[in-house]
């Protein structure tokens, strides 16, 4: 039923100065990249991808506006409305040599994918980026696993000074990846998609749009000019599906008006 079910917050972890993880008293079978609509009564309802699928679901959130501010004020034991999982378009693991490129909290929906990638015998490179070292998510968790980890920070406090895309661009010249997966700020993802298309490497990216129904009927999150719905056909799309679309250029607000990125 597409109606919010109240679930308890079992715990809250502070990941970085601006990012928290919420552990939900909810276990479901979901795929990497899928999301739920989370409702804070009398506030709003917004889409969030899962950062952990095994056991209790987790969502990892950056404080960016009024809704996430409210979310950050919730405590262990509080209730939150949950409906989902949504999104027919999810990450699909393929290939032997894989690169994951994550910008900031964009790493969150990629974590269940990374878990799945590591279940097989694959070579995994993960590039994570953030404004500064303190904002780099899950360095320790990634370092302890069989991952070739690269970092980029805007201020150069950790790894390459610059963006995830700069690191990726150099890397694709040396290593032939079978797949690239990405999530992060849209302009960063656009560059990742462009690199993948140019190098002819299949690539999947997770998109964000203002959503209302979350289940593919209201039309709020449709992409120009294909009409693909981010909530139902996505939120994960291939770089090819997004080529020549609004991706990287504009999105729409609640009224349906265009907003340039």
């Amino acid at each position: 039923m597409n109606a919010p079910e109240m679930v308890r917050i079992l715990g809250i972890r502070t990941e970085t100065p601006t990012v928290k993880t919420f552990i939900l008293n909810k276990k479901i079978r979901a795929k990497p990249g899928q999301f739920a609509m989370l409702w804070i009564p009398e506030v709003d309802e917004k889409p969030f991808s899962f950062s952990k699928l095994d056991g209790n679901l987790e969502i990892t959130v950056k404080e960016v506006g009024p809704f996430t501010r409210k979310l950050f004020s919730l405590k262990k034991g509080d209730l939150i409305g949950f409906r989902g999982p949504y999104g027919d378009g999810c990450f699909r693991v393929k290939g032997k040599r894989i690169c994951v490129a994550a910008g900031g909290v964009g790493l969150a929906p990629l974590m269940p994918l990374i878990d799945e990638i590591l279940k097989g015998n694959r070579d995994l490179t993960v590039i994570i980026g953030a404004v500064t070292e303190k904002e780099l998510l899950w360095m320790d968790r990634l370092e302890s696993r069989k991952i070739d980890l690269l970092t980029a920070t805007d201020d150069g406090t950790c790894g390459k000074k610059g963006s995830v895309c700069d690191v990726l661009k150099k890397l694709v010249g040396k290593t032939r990846f079978d797949r690239i997966y990405s999530c992060g700020p849209e302009l960063m993802m656009k560059r990742v998609a462009d690199i993948a298309l140019k190098e002819k490497i299949p690539c999947q990216l997770s998109l964000e749009r203002y959503m209302k129904c979350g289940m593919g009927i209201c039309g709020q999150c449709c992409i120009d000019p294909t009409g693909l719905r981010v909530c139902k056909d996505g939120p994960v799309f291939t770089a090819k599906e997004l080529r020549g679309t609004e991706f990287g250029r504009y999105n729409r607000n609640a009224s349906g008006s265009r907003c340039d990125l």
Partner: peptide
């Protein structure tokens, strides 16, 4: 018009309720 704040749709047995609030550009 931005219409109403979410949730604007909720499913019920055999249908759904909606109050999008005539959002339009």
């Amino acid at each position: 018009r931005e219409g109403y704040v979410n949730p604007v749709i909720v499913e019920v047995p055999c249908g759904m309720l909606n109050a999008v609030g005539l959002a339009c550009p």
